[in-house]
Computed example of a mutant assay.
Amino acid sequence: MSEIPALDDAAALWSCPPEERAGRPLLILLHGYGSHEGDLFRLVPFLPPEFVVAAVRAPLSPPFPAPGWSWFPIEGVADAASTAAADASAAVTAAAESLRAWLGRTTDPATAVGLLGFSQGGAVALQALRLAPERFSFVVNLAGFVVPGELPTDAALAELRPPVFWGRGARDEVIPPGRIAHTTEWLPRHVDLSGRVYPGLTHSVSEEELADVRAFLEKRLGDLSG
């Protein structure tokens, strides 16, 4: 399996201090390629305040001259049949395991946890859900994708069918079409899927999509409190 370093605990941004987190659900934000933990953290004012929000920093530095951080190398992402693609899938799994290790270090095991990831962060969020479907309550996948390959826990995921919101732009030219096709086929067989394709939207997030995400998160709060 690909080597992915441990996440930097000190780099995580939290919406509140430790003494205000007990008994509240946690929403973890996972940024995209070449970005950083502060990017999605700017969404906190638009998210339901009942959540404790933590934005984590991806563990890898992209090749020069790309800025920021990445969850896994991008080589092989576009080719679903190559050896590089298998290596890329293994790297996504390793990144998801690194995220789970960070969660184990920082959060009470009884805390309800949801994931919100953009692009690469969305792929890692979905992979973490696949690896531990009993640990994560839901996923918000923005402009992300499911990596190919089977995991031993996929059957358990299909039985639990946790809620997943998938939002993407109709004009997104970053995520390869093959990855979109695979995700479109795979997700409905394993999760309770909702979401939208936004006309005119590129590889980004719009105000309309944010409103849909907030509505999805408010429904999840209702599920958790019920």
Rank of each mutant, 00 (worst) to 15 (best):
G144R: 00
E75S: 03
S194R: 12
P199W: 11
L30R: 01
P63R: 03
T111G: 00
L129Y: 10
A58H: 02
R220E: 13
W69V: 04
W102Q: 00
G121K: 06
L151E: 10
V56S: 01
P176C: 06
F72G: 00
S35W: 03
A88V: 04
P48W: 00
V191G: 02
G178H: 13
L151V: 07
A54W: 01
E173A: 14
R130S: 14
E209P: 13
P48V: 00
I74Y: 04
V56A: 05
A81L: 11
G104P: 06
A58P: 05
A156I: 11
A156R: 14
L103M: 11
V139G: 08
N141A: 14
A85C: 15
A91Q: 13
G200P: 04
A181Y: 12
H36I: 05
Y198Q: 14
A181F: 10
P67H: 01
F118P: 00
L40I: 03
I180V: 15
A84P: 05
P17Q: 06
C16R: 13
Q127L: 03
R196L: 14
P63L: 04
R220T: 04
G200C: 10
A128V: 06
L193D: 03
P65S: 15
S70A: 14
R105I: 04
P109W: 01
F118E: 02
E50D: 12
E207M: 13
G68F: 06
T202G: 11
D172Q: 03
S61M: 08
T184Y: 11
A96W: 01
A181H: 10
A125Y: 05
G178W: 12
E20F: 11
G122S: 06
P48F: 01
S61N: 13
V174Q: 12
G38V: 09
L116Q: 02
E134H: 05
A12T: 04
G104V: 04
Y198E: 15
A128M: 10
Y198F: 15
P188Q: 07
S15D: 02
V139M: 07
L126F: 05
R171A: 14
P45I: 10
R220V: 07
T93L: 15
L7A: 03
A6T: 08
L29V: 01
V52T: 10
L13K: 08
G222H: 02
E134C: 01
G167T: 08
F41N: 05
P162L: 10
E50G: 02
P17S: 07
A155V: 15
A22N: 08
E37G: 02
S70D: 12
T184A: 14
P162W: 10
L201K: 07
I4C: 08
R135W: 07
R105T: 05
P5I: 05
T184S: 14
P148F: 09
R161G: 15
